[in-house]
């Protein structure tokens, strides 16, 4: 997992908001959104850019890579939803394992945030 994200980071670049730091939390972000309701790729990417006010837009290639990764780890599972616009759409739902993983990630993030804040917040202007 670490090697994969490292490799991905090397290939990044471009606008700062799509930075490595955010990238490391994409799994958590997708899991968090799927915890609210089952969804499919495009709906999730719309939700992400909407919630961030357009400051973060996930690339499709990245999004589907996340799906593959999460499904492989059995944190999410997919199923085919009702027909719409002349075809079946693939939905994703979070698994019990996924929920457990998400809680663990949230707990870890809180801790990381506190630690980073210790250093980042005491800078004099």
């Amino acid at each position: 997992m670490i090697t994969t994200s490292d490799r991905v980071i090397e290939e990044m670049g471009g606008s700062p908001i799509r930075s490595d730091i955010l990238r490391g939390h994409l799994d958590s972000i997708i899991l968090r959104l799927l915890k609210d309701e089952d969804s499919y790729g495009y709906a999730l990417s719309k939700k992400i850019s909407h919630r961030t006010g357009g400051r973060f837009e996930i690339k499709e290639a990245t999004l589907y890579a996340v799906f593959q990764r999460l499904e492989k780890k059995q944190l999410i599972e997919s199923y085919y939803g009702a027909r719409s616009h002349g075809g079946k759409r693939k939905y994703y739902r979070i698994t019990t394992l996924g929920k457990a993983y998400l809680y663990e990630m949230v707990r870890e993030w809180q801790e990381v945030k506190e630690i980073v804040d210790l250093f980042m917040e005491e800078i004099d202007e």
Binding site: V8, E11, E60, A61, Q68, K72
Partner: peptide
């Protein structure tokens, strides 16, 4: 243009 790099998907697939 916004699609990104297919390489990312390849790396996650077995």
């Amino acid at each position: 243009v916004e699609f990104g790099d297919i390489e990312e998907i390849r790396q996650e697939m077995d």
